[in-house]
Design a protein around this nucleic acid. Structure first.
Length: 470
RNA sequence: GGCGGUGUAGCCAAGUGGUCAAAGGCGAAGGACUGCAAAUCCUUUACUCACCGGUUCGAAUCCGGUCAUCGCCUCCA
């Protein structure tokens, strides 16, 4: 039984999808005005991991991630770079997909763009105007939060507190400082679409309500996003959608913890701002994914290079087992020894952990137990059956690769007969001869010099293998 | 000021009433294997869970208080 911590109820709840066997899930995607940063990457990776686990459980997941491709920041960037908002959005949408691919994230079922849903957005705003929840003021349309009695139910805020805390706003167009824009009238030189309220563009909050409804329906199962989006963004989405449809908007609200850098909020002014691309230049996607998975998705996470280095070293153990299994799949034969190994127990423990609100750190502890035990049994088994090796490998495939994505599939010593690899093999055979004649000075020299070139030799009883360092 | 998160070994991080003298990773120490390494395996590394008080037969886990820290309340994953 899967349970999920629901921000709305502030409790873990048993997950029951609207439709048996299917999950409709929406995650707030990026505003495409720049490369996404490592904090974004955490949310994207965690939503990917959750989606993959749901699929592992057998659910058919409709996974929607929106792209905000029209927004103040995009317009501003266009002006600054003397280009169009449209081109800025196009550029960073392309870059977004590149980074998503680099991170090993499975593509969403659909990536709806705000600019491709203007009609839906206008229709939604119109319904709110028609039922009196929204009002036009000049060329803008605002949501009247006084008309939505449960406003604040997600974030636990009440309107009076918000009013007290509200910064003094000089916008006299709004009835209340807390009202927010659904439609923004176009100013000179800004991109616009025609609407019943004149030329303009959608506000940020409304697009998620419109696009989630269009692609997932009036009510859907899971809505996820960064914890900073709880208020006002998700609060506003509920207000918009529920006021329009009269139905519950989302059953499970799931929020990702924030990522700090060296205990400080990441910001460009502090000089501790890292794009996902910056990090991926130094660390593999597997290391980054593993680093994130070692902390529960909802907990705050402090991002340090020490932490990443530690993850990188820890992950090597898993990678080594994977490569050991690859070799064994080549050499093992049917009819070998079939040792006792309680594989089902590891699957069960992983599922128990992940069923408990996607507890990835606990699941990874099981993975490490599995790695240790698998190594031990392989050490003890002289001639393991091919079937056994395949069973062990399938755990790695389904859990470690399928859900977490933390194994590099390419072996570090690619088997291609390149000149380089041939030369390494040659040196290894020279060294083997040297060892046979107890010329250890020579054999150590070869090993040390190869190490300097990033090639690590490992002797086993039968043969010497090598791997290349990253 | 309002709301929320976090505080567990040198570092990271699970655990939310007994099976906890607290998982897992990194680091460290010792051992097996090895010509020596590497890889792998074995052993050790928190009598203690920010602090104080309370509830309970029993608390890291519940309650009250204190302190520290991060975030949201304005665009933000």
């Amino acid at each position: 039984m899967l349970s999920i911590y629901n921000t709305l109820s502030r409790k873990k709840e048993e997950f029951i999808p609207l439709e048996a066997g299917k999950v409709k899930m929406y995650v707030c995607g990026p505003t495409v005005y720049d490369l996404f940063h490592i904090g974004n990457a955490r949310s994207f990776i965690n939503s990917d991991f959750i989606r993959k686990y749901l699929e592992y459980l057998g659910y058919e997941v409709t996974f929607v991630m929106n792209l905000t491709d029209i927004d103040d920041k995009i317009i501003k960037k266009g002006l600054k770079e003397n280009t169009s908002a449209q081109l800025v959005a196009k550029t960073y949408t392309d870059e977004f997909f590149k980074d998503i691919t680099t991170l090993g994230i499975k593509p969403a079922t659909i990536y709806p763009r705000a600019t491709e849903h203007i009609e839906d957005i206008i229709a939604l705003i119109q319904s709110l105007v028609d039922n009196g929840t929204a009002y036009q003021s000049g060329n803008d349309v605002f949501y009247d939060i006084s008309k939505f009695s449960t406003y604040g139910k997600l974030s636990g805020k009440n309107i009076d507190d918000l009013m007290e805390g509200a910064r003094v706003e000089v916008n006299e167009a709004k009835k209340s400082p807390l009202d927010f824009a659904l439609w923004k009238g176009a100013k000179e030189g800004e991109p616009f679409w025609e609407s019943p309220w004149g030329k303009g563009r959608p506000g940020w909050h409304i697009e998620c309500s419109a696009m989630s409804c269009k692609h997932l329906g009036k009510t859907f199962d899971i809505h996820a996003g960064g914890s900073d989006l709880i208020f006002p963004h998700h609060e506003n989405e509920i207000a918009q959608s529920e006021a329009s449809t009269g139905q519950k908007f989302v059953n499970y609200w799931l929020h990702f913890g924030f990522l700090n850098i060296d205990n400080e909020k990441m910001s460009k002014s502090l000089g501790n701002f890292f794009t996902a691309r910056d990090i991926l230049a130094k660390y593999s996607k597997e290391t980054v994914r593993f680093f994130f998975a070692q902390t529960h998705y909802a907990a705050p996470l402090n991002f340090t290079s020490e932490g990443l280095d530690s993850s990188k070293r820890g992950l090597q153990k898993v990678q080594n087992l994977y490569e050991r299994l690859l070799d064994l799949q080549q050499s093992a034969v049917s009819g070998g020894t079939q040792p006792d190994f309680n594989l089902a127990g590891y699957y069960q423990s992983v599922e128990e952990a992940l069923n408990d609100d996607f507890n990835s750190p606990r699941a990874l502890a099981v993975v490490f137990d599995f790695v240790r035990d698998a190594n031990r049994i392989l050490n003890e088994t002289t001639n393991p059956a091919k079937e056994f090796v395949n069973e062990i490998m399938s755990f790695v495939q389904k859990i470690v690769i399928g859900i977490f994505g933390i194994v590099q599939l390419e072996k570090s010593n690619a088997a291609d007969p390149t000149l380089e690899n041939d030369l390494i093999e040659l040196l290894i055979s020279v060294r083997t001869q040297a060892k046979a004649s107890k010329n250890f000075q020579m054999s150590d020299l070869i090993r040390d010099e190869l190490k300097k070139l990033g090639i690590i030799l490992q002797d086993s009883k039968e043969k010497t293998t090598y791997k290349k360092q990253e």
